[in-house]
Amino acid sequence: MKVIKQSPMKATLTLLALALASTTTMAQELSITVTNLTQGLHFTPVVTAAHSNESRLFMLSDMASTELQAMAEGGDISGLVSLLSNADANINENPAGGLLAPSMSASFTLTNDSANTHLSLAAMILPSNDGFVGLDSWEIPEEAGTYTVFLNAYDAGTEANDEIRGSGVPGEAGMPVPPPLDASIGMNGTGVTDMESNDKVHIHRGSLGDDDMSAGKSDINNSVQRWLNPVAKLTITVL
């Protein structure tokens, strides 16, 4: 380290300036718990990220990105993760190690760089066609403490909500059904609708469902797999 001779007064001021600068640019340690508040929905692997004010995972009333579409239609967060990596975000992937079951929680820690002042989260909700639980750019408080944020269910606007078994591949109709959900989702539904008239990200209108596990319009169970907002709770402790 280079030593520069200077007056004691100047040295004090320099130290003071450094001290002030470090309080505003210090990384933060976040302890985060995501809770699935529903009794009948599963969340696919959750992606949570601290990022700059310039980046967004999704925005209400904007068209979904192809990466958001892949998450919302099939639960694939790899595209969002690479977008976030390219934007120098601090990322946590898949804290539940797979599906986050109804009423279950997953906890993790995240250290955010000083430039990454905002927190976002996304995970597909099942059963749905392109529904997801999301948090869009919540400003991370500088003050230490525990904060609670309630999250809503969104519709990516990229696929018709036909509510019948099908594909998780972006652009293909129907809902993906991973093995753990196979028994709880109906069969042979004729389809609720083949239209998606609102192609912007919006608040999900909810699933219709029906009470017939082997026929009917929908493969969703109307007494178990519906929801009302909020669908998730996020507890963030700023250490």
Binding site: S61, V192, T193, S197, I203, R205, L208, N229
Partner: peptide, 12 residues
Amino acid sequence: TQAHRFDNPAVK
């Protein structure tokens, strides 16, 4: 129809 169903919030 089902297309007219909604959940909160409706407005930002």
